[in-house]
């Protein structure tokens, strides 16, 4: 661990100023990922800016029936919030599928968005890694890549985003609220995380000095028809190999709207709105589920150890759509897959 200085930000403006003052500064919220990375010498901030006392801890109901979740609301608080459970049960379910109760108590909404990959090589400072050390190479390509990306990867990086919560937020078309030196702005969830391309060191589209202040959810019609299906190597306390957040609206046996977000398969929560749009009006049945899965995975590419993720993701999409359409979302406690 590299020593760092510590300051406590008293306001969002303070935090932004501190980030602008030192390019090697990092914000500390729940710390469940940053402290972990610092101890592994993967993150080496010169300055840590504690934002835990900023007034970003509220979940506020919006006039349109949506919610605004402050960046510092803990994952547990979001998951068990009655309003979230009632109107955005998909989000609650996805959060409860991730990490452990202790980690969820500490981890924050904003921090969850900024989680870094679990790629073995990224986490090992002795290994080359384009994400950690741009230009050094990607040993996961040709190496141990069982947990790596099958969609949207590049020759520079095949890492995946590890969050469960973000997969649900992607499916829910959340909006990320940020504040920076130039004031506040909003980023659509699909545009918040990025694909690796030739710059995998950047996980997201935040600009220098920007801080996530909250996540906004708009009212939707999915409360009864959704699921979060997470597949992993042990039945709890493990990152997803593949996860699917599905949210659908069905009328007369046909999809009015269908949304599918995938976790564990790409550098960002994976969605393909164009593909989804093609299935509006399609019968909400098995044949459609398969065609949609085919379509979503059309560009999937395995790297050897992770080849299995392509059929696994395909079957998981079909299963998740079945769960969502039938109105029987996956229970995160009962380990039988419904």
């Amino acid at each position: 661990m590299k020593p760092f200085s510590y300051t406590r930000a008293e306001s969002v403006r303070d935090a932004v100023a501190a980030l602008m003052a030192n390019p090697q500064a990092q914000l500390l919220a729940g710390g469940t990922n940053l402290i972990d990375l610092i101890k592994y010498d993967v993150a080496e901030p010169e300055a840590v800016i504690d934002i835990n006392r900023l007034p970003l801890k509220e979940i506020v109901e919006l006039p349109d029936g949506g919610l605004r979740i402050g960046a510092l609301v803990s994952n547990s608080a979001v998951a068990y919030d009655p309003r979230v459970k009632q109107h955005f049960p998909l989000l609650s379910s996805a959060i409860l599928a991730g990490a452990s109760p202790q980690l969820r108590n500490a981890a924050t909404t904003g921090g969850n968005l900024l989680q870094r990959t679990r790629c073995y090589y990224f986490y090992d400072p002795a290994s080359p890694c384009n994400k950690r050390d741009p230009g050094s190479g990607c040993p996961a390509i040709g190496g141990l890549n069982r947990i790596h990306a099958i969609l949207g990867a590049s020759d520079a990086c095949i890492a995946v985003h590890p969050s469960d919560m973000c997969v649900a937020l992607a499916a829910l078309d959340a909006t990320v609220e940020v504040e920076g030196p130039d004031g506040a702005r909003e980023i659509g969830f699909a545009d918040f995380h990025r694909l690796p391309g030739d710059g995998p060191d950047r996980d997201n589209t935040l600009r220098r000095g920007e801080i996530v202040t909250g996540v906004r959810l708009e009212a939707n019609h999915f409360a009864g028809h959704h699921t979060y299906l997470k597949l992993r190597d042990r039945l709890s306390y493990a990152f997803a190999l593949v996860s699917v957040a599905a949210a659908v609206q069905v009328a007369d046996g046909r999809f009015v709207e269908v949304r599918v977000a995938l976790g564990g398969v790409a550098h960002k929560p994976w969605r393909d709105p164009l593909a989804e749009a093609e299935f509006a009006g399609a019968p909400a049945g098995e044949e459609t589920f398969i065609r949609l899965a085919d379509r979503l995975l059309a560009g999937a590419e395995g790297r050897g150890h992770n080849d299995f993720k392509i059929p696994l993701a395909h079957r998981a999409i079909v299963r998740a759509l079945r769960q969502a359409v039938s109105g029987h979302p996956q229970d995160q406690t009962v380990k039988a897959i419904q």
Partner: peptide, 13 residues
Amino acid sequence: GERINSCLKLAVT
């Protein structure tokens, strides 16, 4: 009152 992993909490916070 909340259960937390103390290894990931900086005391100073």
